[in-house]
Computed example of a mutant assay.
Amino acid sequence: MPKTPPQTAEQPDPGHSPFHAGEQALQRANGSRDRIEMFGRRAIRPYLPDQHRAFFAQLPFVAVAAVDSDGRPWASLFPGPPGFVHAPDAYHLDLALHGAAADPVRQALHPGAAIGLLGIEMHSRRRNRLNGRIKSLNAKQLRLRVDQSFGNCPKYIRHRQLSPSRPTTDRRTARVSARFTQLDGAVRDQIAAADVFFVASAIKAQDNPVIQGVDVSHRGGPVGFVTINGNSLIIPDYRGNNYFNTLGNFLLNPRAGLVFPDFDSGALLQLTGRTALLTQDSPELHGVDDAVGGWRFTLDEGLRLQDALPFRTTAQTQTDQ
């Protein structure tokens, strides 16, 4: 069992719900509200349990989300040698910055900024989420103050093994090779071939424009599970933990950032745009097996970050659902 940190003034009021109004509304709509509230109060912590601290320290990359100066969420993958993510205590996480300076997530980082972080181990299908704020930042490292830490189930994660392709700290080859506002050509081809992407979402405080919370989440399915419709993507939502972290954010703020990793070339396809929630009976989801709803993403801007990942992966099996 993880060790529980001592009670301190830094910990939030235990009577405060771990879910915001958007998440609660969707939980209420599907009849899970009371059950998930009770479970969330036990599972969502304002600190890192010991097993989460150990888990993050062994990872070769993490998914990171941040919001730029125009209020647009972006998602990315930040790589590093095992140990590049380190928790000096249960309330903080240090992250060494080896990613490309041209990455829009890297450019959106600043002290006080809210960011979302997802640790995911592809070969074991374990994943843990962390949301917090940047406490300190320099050219080489950031320190994050933990707001929420919790685990996710391994559904829809495809088994993959990672193999190094170059030194993790070598950033010289990473570059933006294309910027675009239309989904066409090679962009459509990469999305059509994807069985995984990561999505960034964010909400604002109701009484001021400061971003209140940022989240990054994994989305997976069989190849072709993302449908391209003009300059929009249709993404099914499958039955999950009923937290509704991503969709609850969309309900309050429809902006989103997506990143599609190309594990064959090491490139990242990064998109930012706007979303609309879809119900299970929406025509755009017709024929999608097991979908309990979904969402439409419409592109505002995108870029391809070439040679961003210093490893390649080999897929082993089909996605477990």
Rank of each mutant, 00 (worst) to 15 (best):
L299H: 03
Q7W: 06
G99H: 15
N253S: 13
F198Q: 05
F78Q: 12
N138H: 05
P236M: 13
V226T: 14
V196C: 11
H16V: 14
N128R: 14
L305R: 07
F84E: 07
A174M: 05
F225G: 00
V85I: 12
A308R: 06
L271D: 05
A9Y: 01
L144F: 12
H98D: 02
S163P: 00
S124Q: 09
A194M: 09
G221M: 07
R304L: 13
A276P: 03
A9V: 09
V214Q: 04
A63D: 04
A114N: 08
V216L: 09
A57Q: 15
N229Y: 11
A186K: 12
Y243T: 06
I157S: 00
L77D: 04
P81W: 12
S149T: 04
Y243G: 07
A113N: 04
R274D: 13
G287W: 09
F260I: 08
N208R: 14
A90N: 02
L162T: 05
G294S: 10
S265G: 01
I228P: 02
A96K: 14
V196A: 13
L303Q: 09
R127T: 03
I44R: 02
L303T: 09
V259L: 04
T8E: 10
L117E: 07
V226S: 09
N241I: 08
P60S: 13
L247V: 08
Q270W: 00
E301S: 02
T246P: 00
Q212G: 11
L77T: 04
A267D: 15
L118R: 10
R129G: 03
V64N: 03
D189Q: 15
L271W: 01
V176K: 05
L258N: 02
N253E: 12
L309F: 11
R129Y: 02
Q27E: 14
I120N: 01
S32H: 12
Q212W: 00
P88I: 12
D264M: 06
P2D: 15
V105H: 01
L59T: 03
D237I: 05
D68Y: 08
L233A: 12
R125L: 13
T317A: 06
H123Q: 10
G40Y: 02
R274V: 11
A205F: 12
Y156V: 03
F180S: 02
Q190E: 05
V105E: 01
H98S: 02
L109C: 07
R160H: 10
V64I: 15
K135D: 15
D34K: 13
V146G: 02
T168A: 15
Q148L: 07
G15Y: 07
T314D: 12
Q316C: 12
D207N: 11
V85K: 01
T314V: 13
L285H: 10
R127V: 07
R126I: 00
T173R: 10
R129V: 01
D70C: 11
S282A: 15
A65H: 11
R171F: 01
L95D: 04
F197Q: 03
R143S: 14
A256R: 06
P104Q: 06
A114L: 03
L59C: 04
F225W: 11
Y47H: 08
D94R: 15
P73I: 10
A114F: 03
I134E: 01
P209N: 09
